[in-house]
Amino acid sequence: MTIQTKNQRYERKQKQKGLVKRTLWIPAGVEVEVKQMIQFLLENPDYVPAQARSLKTGRFKKID
């Protein structure tokens, strides 16, 4: 029997949920919005982000 650390057990459970671990560097000014989008996607797996809104103009742009 292999002894697993608390972190290894956590990561195994996340993988079993179908999640993938990624590290991203994001601008500090959009940290809250990125966290909100990720939380929304976790709670609503049938959705995908399809567009982004400019903070300067308010216009939306399709994500290719």
Rank of each mutant, 00 (worst) to 15 (best):
M37Q: 12
E11C: 04
K61Q: 13
L19H: 03
L19G: 00
K13I: 06
E31M: 10
K61A: 12
K21W: 04
I26E: 01
F60E: 11
V30R: 04
Q8E: 15
R22A: 07
W25S: 15
Q16Y: 03
L42T: 01
Q14F: 01
M37R: 04
F60Y: 15
S54H: 01
Q14H: 07
Q8T: 06
I3W: 05
E31V: 13
P45F: 00
Q4V: 08
V20N: 07
R9M: 13
K21I: 02
L19Y: 08
K13M: 13
K35C: 08
P45D: 04
K35P: 01
V30N: 02
G29F: 00
I26K: 01
K61N: 06
G29V: 06
K6T: 06
F40T: 09
F60Q: 04
Q51C: 11
K15E: 15
V20G: 02
Y47E: 13
E33I: 01
L24C: 11
V20C: 04
R9T: 08
N7R: 13
L41G: 02
F40P: 01
Y47N: 13
Q36V: 04
E43T: 09
K15R: 15
K62Y: 02
Q36T: 04
P49E: 05
N7L: 15
Y47I: 06
E33A: 03
Q51Y: 05
K17P: 00
Q16I: 03
M1W: 11
L24M: 14
F60R: 09
L55P: 05
P45W: 00
R53H: 02
P27E: 08
F60V: 11
R59H: 11
L24N: 06
A50D: 14
A28E: 15
P49K: 06
E43C: 08
N44S: 09
Q16P: 01
E33C: 00
L55R: 13
V34Y: 04
Q39E: 15
F60A: 05
S54P: 01
L42H: 10
V48A: 13
N44R: 06
V20E: 12
E43P: 00
K62S: 08
Y10H: 11
K61W: 05
R22Q: 13
G29T: 06
K13A: 15
T23G: 05
L42K: 11
D46M: 12
Q8M: 10
Y47D: 10
A50Q: 12
K21N: 10
T2A: 14
P45I: 00
L42E: 08
A28C: 06
E33M: 03
R22I: 12
L41C: 07
